[in-house]
Design a protein around this nucleic acid. Structure first.
Lengths: 356, 356
DNA sequence: ACGGTTAGTCGAAACGCTTCGACAACCGCG
DNA sequence: CGCGGTTGTCGAAGCGTTTCGACTAACCGT
């Protein structure tokens, strides 16, 4: 546990000089710098994070605030985390993942000056955490968006573009009767961003193709997926494709299809939205999916945050990233419908290649 | 940003008195305490974590070191985390989840005195992180076990007990030909604890019932599961039950069974080991599973760690927790075999209730 | 040769807390 | 009544950095 003092003595310079070598806050001659670095090396010196934090009023810690419910982190969320961690580490910052459920806990973290800034995951449309942190004067970047984003920095998935691509993929395959299985009705009325935005995007995309948009909400569980499938078949018996925005429900949907003797993708094509490769390949057949740019999202969020913190650059970073279409085994040409609406392949457009 | 000084002045006491009120390190009269608390309240005082850490040489931060691979955190691992976070928060500590992949990064965290202690997840049999942290003098508790656990504190799943219960459940249902699908061969030869321990436990449990243990390794993917099923059927065509220790492979196995026209649980029963409720219910039918005591594991680990850190109590906490059997739809009486070995139900024992 | 920069270094004062030694006031006990 | 022992409080000395002002020595253009 060598201190700066020890280094200074060994290098025969003053403590402040050692500090300047470390921080680069003032110019230091090459000769001195070398002496100091050598001393550090021989003493195996590591700066004390607490002392540094106290003196500089900067903890060099940024928090990634994730509500951890019992459901666990999907591979998607994990990708946020790894991306964020890599970006922080590269900048010499520590990333602490705080599973704050408790708002007070969060407030404590913030006002104890332990966090230089924070990235918020799973942002709700009305998110009290945003206010709490702003009040505490903690720089903030969101992954996701609140309802009113004025003055806020965020990175989010470009749901509009993503849904458009997914629909285009199905339409290209000849599907006309496409059902969208969303999150729960409760989530939608609560204004949960991804649910609302994809709904709107779906309606827009389908309308753009001259098709009728059918949306079914589903609870986040296999059972919810089964129920949704039943509802979907009731509402659109002639459906040939399902677009699913619900990683849990999708397994129920697949199970339900099998039970009904409907094969994927022969009878029904399935596309999963905002899904990780890992999950997509769990299913049989592997799911055609829109893969979320998870780690990029995390990285970009932290980079933007650090720019806030250090005062470098824009205080207002707002960016959307699309998911990439990855075609696997769960989508194929529309078949069931051929008998019903043979010869109506009249829309060969709309299959723009994935942006980036 | 009121400081202790401000509080002291407002309460007309000395700074040290305020500190004692906060830490309880020395007795303070009720009258004084009240004055101080009142002052804190009116000033909305929050102690500065850095200053406190510097002066006391204790950061009040413990790390939960989790290797975050691209696979993401299962619900099981997430339960560790939430359990640990709750325990830490209850003790007034912060839990920082560090996705350290990098050993150097870990070493840095440790020697910068930023961590009072650490809980290691996903411990390998030979885990260099253990040595690195011990060297840095950071108190340590493992979730999982290294090969040599002398002098180490750990909490782990009681694989022996868990496998015994799972096997007993199947045997009770009349199954005689049970195949165990483990992690990959590579994981086993690498000595990955859960893989090795469950293998041994399985052999012991089957032998105890006078049955032949058949084990098949499987890659951690749906495809790996399919391959394993093929191998299993080749090696034991008359199998009536599969015990699976591989959350990813199990979906492949289920798919493979369906493809072969084998129904679960009519033809083949399936038990998933060390699985979370969430995942178990994703499958159709929902999986009978040994549910891991995830959040308890996390909680106990942190509690033990904090005892190390504060010097209270045993420096050497070693504890095993069993998984609980949760019967769902994927297991049923042995049927296929009835024709082959009718009337050999000779072992009605071994179905002890979960030890909890 | 001269004031004015600038590069390089130092000493000392923070930063906001904990903790130690000291001390006064009070306790019960012989 | 005097004694050791608590109890409650205070002041001051750190904890290991950063950062500011000051100082020296070289360097600039003139």
């Amino acid at each position: 546990m060598a201190t700066m003092h020890d280094v200074a003595r060994l290098a025969r310079v003053s403590v402040s000089t050692v500090s300047y070598v470390l921080t680069g806050a003032r110019p230091i001659s090459q000769a001195t710098r070398d002496k100091v670095l050598a001393a550090m090396a021989t003493l195996d010196y590591q700066p004390n994070a607490m002392a540094r934090g106290l003196a500089s009023r900067r903890s060099r810690i940024v928090g990634l605030l994730m509500p951890m419910d019992e459901r666990g982190l999907g591979a998607t969320e994990t990708a946020f985390v790894t991306g964020a961690a890599a970006a922080a580490s590269a900048a010499g910052y520590h990333l602490i993942l705080s599973p704050v459920g408790d708002l007070d806990d969060l407030r404590r973290l913030a006002s104890q000056r332990m966090l230089d800034g924070a990235v918020l995951m799973e942002v709700q449309v009305e998110d009290e955490r945003v206010g709490a942190l702003q009040e505490a004067g903690v720089p903030l970047v969101l992954i996701g968006r609140t309802g009113d984003t004025t003055g806020l920095s965020y990175v989010d998935i470009d749901f509009d573009q993503t849904v458009r691509e997914a629909v285009a993929h199905l339409v290209d395959l000849g599907h006309r009767r496409i059902v969208y299985v969303n999150h729960s009705a409760a989530a939608i009325t609560a204004g949960y961003g991804p649910a609302v935005r994809t709904r709107d995007a779906f309606v827009a995309a389908m309308s753009g193709h001259g098709l009728e948009p059918v949306m079914i909400p589903a609870e986040d569980s296999a059972a919810g997926g089964r129920a949704a499938l039943t509802a979907a078949l009731a509402q659109a018996p002639d459906l040939t494709a399902v677009l699913v925005m619900n990683e849990n429900a999708i397994f129920g949907i697949l199970g339900g299809l099998t039970d009904r003797g409907l094969a994927v993708p022969r009878d029904v094509s399935v596309v999963s939205m905002v899904t990780s490769t890992q999950v997509a390949e769990l299913a049989t057949p592997a799911l055609t999916a829109m893969t979320s740019p998870g780690s990029a999202l995390g990285r970009i969020a932290v980079e933007a945050l650090l720019r806030h913190v250090t005062g470098t650059g824009d205080d207002n970073h707002q960016q959307l990233l699309p998911c990439a279409l990855e075609v696997r085994g769960s989508t194929g040409p529309a078949a069931r419908m051929v008998a019903v609406s043979a010869g109506d392949r009249d829309d060969p457009t709309g299959s723009g290649p994935p942006g980036s």
